Simulated assay, not measured.
Amino acid sequence: MTKTATSQSSGGDVRLQGISKTFGSFTAVHPLDLTVPAGSFFALLGASGCGKTTTLRMIAGLEDPTTGTVELSGQDVTALPPYKRQVNTVFQNYALFPHLDIYENVAFGLRRRGIKSVKKQVEEMLDLVQLGPMARRKPQQLSGGQQQRVAVARALINKPQVLLLDEPLGALDLKLRRQMQLELKRIQTEVGITFVHVTHDQEEAMTMADTVAVMNGGRVEQLGAPADLYENPASTFVANFLGTSNLIAAEVVAVSGDDVQVTAGDAKLRLPAARCSATLAAGEKLLAGVRPEKVSLAHADDAEAIPDGRNRLPARIKDASFIGVSTQYVIDAGALGALAVYEQNIERDGRLIPGADVVLHWNPAHTFGLDAAQDISAGADLDEEAA
């Protein structure tokens, strides 16, 4: 899709330098430096209380930073009130005017600025969010997803350099939320302006964003493209919070080129040195991580058929949950604890039931290594309500 002249002529870089926020003795956001490139879809992801919404509100001018500066397109706006910043915010409750129809809700910002001829701009914006035929309906006559699109149109018609989205899909049911994730991404691609999106929903962040900043305790734990964060978590918090990870306590035996050999209980495993953030020397402890969908299950009777060169762990099935597209297994790996395995339901083995002895096996290249000094369960059971 071609980007509009509106988006091409605007800036949109967001740069936070040394920005922090304290409320009394509580530090909501520790000093952080963050740059959001113009035209990108950027997500601040984290659990309740991590500081993501406070960070968004400082960009919007709704909170004054305790330290640091906020720059938009190279301009220091730290001291400017919200209405003097080239940003607009879409909130979870949409904040539409119930007494105005959709057309007038979208036109509101233009009329407030004294613009007389609004018809063309409003119609273009309603077409962008695919609500043209509903222009004369009231908000209460629309679904939640349609109201959300009206809120986006009302914000975008003001031609902001940056659109801030504060848990915009939180009030929608799961199916509609997934539809709206794709819809918002389409809109952002079409208009080409910077979107900064706050969410506690990992799938939402990974579906929509070009770049994700995972926040924890008022700090950015890791920053990167969704696939990179998922495949190469830098901490146990990111490994556990962004999806599910099996983290296995292990000890380094030897390092040979790019190959690291470790022992985990009685098992010997291998992993790439390039995927290790832990110290690599014989005798050092590390956590060997592997995602549940990367692991295969073989019944113990078929162990000899497992190809050579794969990591393998003997274990026993503790529980199995059929969820349609896959079966999720809880595996008892003895001293190594409980592990998760997700297998697609393509050719189900009827012997893989609770109590069955099995061998877990996977490609060593799918293993990552983390510093064992971290909390192995960090981020695993966080409250998923919006901050």
Rank of each mutant, 00 (worst) to 15 (best):
Y329R: 00
A335T: 06
E293L: 03
I306E: 09
I346E: 01
H299N: 13
A320S: 13
R348A: 03
D308F: 03
P307I: 11
G350V: 06
A315W: 03
P354D: 12
I323R: 12
V341C: 08
T327S: 09
D319Q: 11
V295M: 13
A356Q: 12
R310E: 02
L287V: 07
H361D: 15
W362Q: 03
I306F: 02
S296K: 04
R316I: 08
N311G: 03
S326L: 08
A356P: 14
I317M: 04
I317Y: 04
I346N: 02
E304A: 15
D301K: 07
K318D: 10
D332Y: 05
V359G: 03
Q328H: 12
D332T: 02
G309K: 13
W362A: 08
A298V: 11
L287Q: 10
G289D: 10
F322R: 07
A305S: 15
A333K: 05
L360W: 02
A356W: 10
R316F: 07
A338W: 02
L313I: 14
V341T: 02
V295N: 11
V359S: 13
G337D: 14
V290C: 15
I331R: 02
N311W: 13
L339A: 06
H299F: 07
G350N: 13
R351G: 01
A338T: 08
R310Y: 08
A340P: 00
D302F: 09
Q328P: 00
P292W: 05
A303P: 09
P354V: 03
V290W: 14
I317F: 01
G324F: 04
A298M: 13
A333Q: 11
A338H: 12
A300L: 09
T327A: 02
G334S: 07
I346F: 01
A300E: 15
Q328A: 09
F322E: 00
K285L: 15
A305D: 03
A335F: 01
G324P: 13
D349Y: 14
F322Y: 11
K294C: 10
V330G: 05
R310P: 01
I353V: 14
V358I: 15
A288Y: 12
D301A: 09
L297N: 11
R312A: 14
E293V: 06
G309H: 14
L313E: 00
V330H: 14
D319M: 03
S296A: 11
G289P: 09
I317W: 03
G324M: 12
L297S: 08
L336S: 05
I331F: 00
